[in-house]
Computed example of a mutant assay.
Amino acid sequence: MKRALVLYAHPCEESFAASVHQTVVTRLRANDWAVDDCNLYAEGFSPVLSAEERRGYHDIGPNTLPVQDYVERIRRARALVMVFPVWNFGYPAILKGFFDRVFVPGVSFGMVDGKVQGMLHNIRRVAAVTTYGGTRTRATLAGDPPRRIVMRALRKTVHPGAGFRYLALYDMNRATERDRAAHLNRVYREMDNF
């Protein structure tokens, strides 16, 4: 079965990100994906890694207990789609906290012969759908951390042959209605071919 976990990270229902999120979910479902729509804000996900969790971080098995539901959800997925804005050249805190708390040893990576190896081999497709307030040039000059983390670090945790898409609308602060519509159309087409 084609099962996609959609991680959505924006607090405002009226945001452009909400329109992007709705487009992603609608198009995936229209193309026979079983969508696990994980709206981190609506679900009240706590991004805070507690002292207790940090102390038990490497204790494989018990380290997943505080976030067991999310671990099971990501292990069931064949695809991961993240919908989020880029704030201060990074992920919203709630999404960063998801990675800190859920992508723990034994879930997203493990040690094999002294080397870190990805463990989410069930994930065969990944898409990041995002907006930046600044231009692509500005993001590039800053190193574009969100793009690099998705395209490099996240790539190391999933199936080695997984397909990756990074769909970004840069310069959102000055985006016109036409720019936003073009981005939604691109997302629509990409999710139809996902």
Rank of each mutant, 00 (worst) to 15 (best):
S50M: 06
A51W: 04
E52H: 02
E52G: 03
E53N: 04
R55E: 13
R55W: 10
I60W: 08
I60A: 10
G61D: 13
P62S: 04
P62H: 13
P62K: 00
T64P: 00
T64R: 01
L65A: 14
V67F: 06
Q68P: 06
Q68R: 14
D69V: 11
Y70A: 03
Y70P: 01
R73G: 02
I74V: 10
I74Y: 04
A77M: 07
A79C: 04
L80P: 11
L80C: 09
V81P: 12
M82I: 15
V83A: 14
V86H: 02
V86S: 07
W87V: 04
F89M: 08
F89R: 00
G90T: 03
G90C: 04
Y91F: 15
P92N: 10
L95R: 05
K96E: 11
K96S: 11
K96G: 09
G97F: 04
F98S: 12
F99W: 08
D100Q: 10
D100Y: 07
D100I: 13
V102W: 01
V102H: 09
F103E: 00
F103Q: 01
P105W: 03
S108K: 05
S108L: 07
F109S: 14
G110I: 02
V112N: 12
V112Q: 07
V112E: 14
D113C: 05
D113Q: 05
D113I: 02
D113M: 01
G114C: 00
V116E: 13
V116I: 15
L120Y: 02
L120I: 06
L120D: 03
I123D: 08
I123Q: 05
R124N: 07
R124H: 11
R125D: 08
A128M: 09
V129R: 01
V129P: 07
V129F: 10
V129Q: 12
T130W: 05
T131Y: 06
Y132I: 07
G133F: 06
G133I: 04
G134C: 14
R136V: 10
R136F: 05
T137D: 08
R138E: 11
A139N: 03
L141Q: 04
A142M: 15
G143K: 06
D144A: 15
D144T: 11
D144L: 13
P146G: 04
R147E: 13
V150Q: 08
M151Y: 01
L154K: 00
L154T: 04
R155C: 05
T157R: 02
H159C: 14
H159S: 12
P160S: 12
A162L: 14
A162V: 10
G163L: 08
R165W: 05
